[in-house]
Amino acid sequence: MKTILQTKTPVVGYALPLIAACVSAIVTIGCAAPSHTITPEMQARAAADNPAPPKDADFPAMNSAKWQQGSFPSLEALRAMRTGMGKDQVRELLSFPHFSEGLGGVREWNYIFHFRTGAGPEYITCQYMVRFNADVLTNGMYWKGPGCADLLAPAVVAAKPTPPVVPPPPVVAAKTTLGADGLFRFDRSAEGDLLPDGRQRVERLAAALRGQAFDQVVVTGHTDRLGSTAYNDALSLARAQTVRQLLVQNGVDAARVRAEGKGERQPVAHCAGTARTPELIACLQPDRRVEIEVTGLR
């Protein structure tokens, strides 16, 4: 009896296109690592980086983009971008970058964004760069293109026929202290956690600074002694960074504003006891503050 041998096409012949597609996808989006927990200490490091901004030549040529059509992003999504965000969070807001960013250790994402200029089809095009630090958290967001950064400023409401009289900006003090309890919701530090009165005080200070000549503004966050040193350092720096960002959003030159956190190391209150009682928390209230010091005011 003869044995009939059947020749089959090797399975690898079918697998090659699939493997090629997978490799292409990996090259497109980079080697994405599994998600990891973002700690306050990691966010504090990202907020403290303050890297030098890129030059126009550091942005990739738009014709080298993988997706050259770009996209029309949500302004609210762009306004939600902050330092200390992970790649999953950035991807949730802005989607994948439009350029092939490499295979491993990716520290930079680049986008091509379009913005409508009116009711018609006309739009302007901007490039947007997101940089990541060694913890793979955002430590800088940058624009290329005239007027692109200004697109995130709040819309200006048209003046009414009989606008109210606006008092002149207050005289800027060399050092202004804002109580953190009146600035932020309890134990919070993001811009969305700013209380309405606290936000208005920072915006009024920014308006006053716009009319003054000065060398530098240093925003320093402080906490009370309750909680761990590492946590207090991270919280104080995150709050200072939020106040700095609000000043910049309201017209203060970003290159002249610096944020730092001192945690619990510079107390001003003298309170006995260590138990976390309502009385002790109230006594330590002056320690929870954000100081804004203007140098070279003239």
Rank of each mutant, 00 (worst) to 15 (best):
F214S: 10
Y128F: 07
Q127G: 05
S189I: 04
D56F: 01
Y123N: 04
G261T: 03
T117P: 07
L78G: 14
P164L: 06
A155C: 08
C148R: 06
T295Q: 13
L5F: 14
V202R: 01
P121I: 12
N139P: 01
L152A: 00
H270Y: 15
A20P: 11
A254Q: 02
T162M: 15
S74C: 04
V202T: 04
Q245R: 09
L16A: 13
P73L: 03
A20Q: 11
K66H: 15
V268T: 12
V90G: 04
F96T: 14
H98L: 03
S100M: 14
R276S: 15
Y231A: 05
A206V: 01
G30M: 02
F184E: 01
V165C: 00
M1W: 04
R298V: 13
S74N: 07
P168C: 05
T138D: 01
A240Q: 00
R201T: 15
Q200I: 10
P167L: 06
I292H: 03
R199Y: 08
M1P: 10
G227M: 05
Q241P: 08
R116Y: 15
C22V: 15
I19K: 06
G120W: 14
D287I: 06
V202K: 04
L151R: 11
D181S: 14
N139R: 00
D193Q: 05
H98S: 04
Y231R: 12
C31E: 09
V218N: 09
I4K: 05
F99C: 09
Y142H: 06
V90P: 02
K2G: 05
V27C: 14
A159M: 11
P286A: 05
V106S: 03
S228Q: 03
V106W: 00
A238C: 07
A65N: 03
L93W: 01
Y128R: 00
H270R: 15
W109I: 11
D224K: 00
L152K: 03
A207S: 13
V217S: 10
F72E: 10
G296T: 12
R204S: 15
Y111T: 01
V248N: 07
Q89M: 01
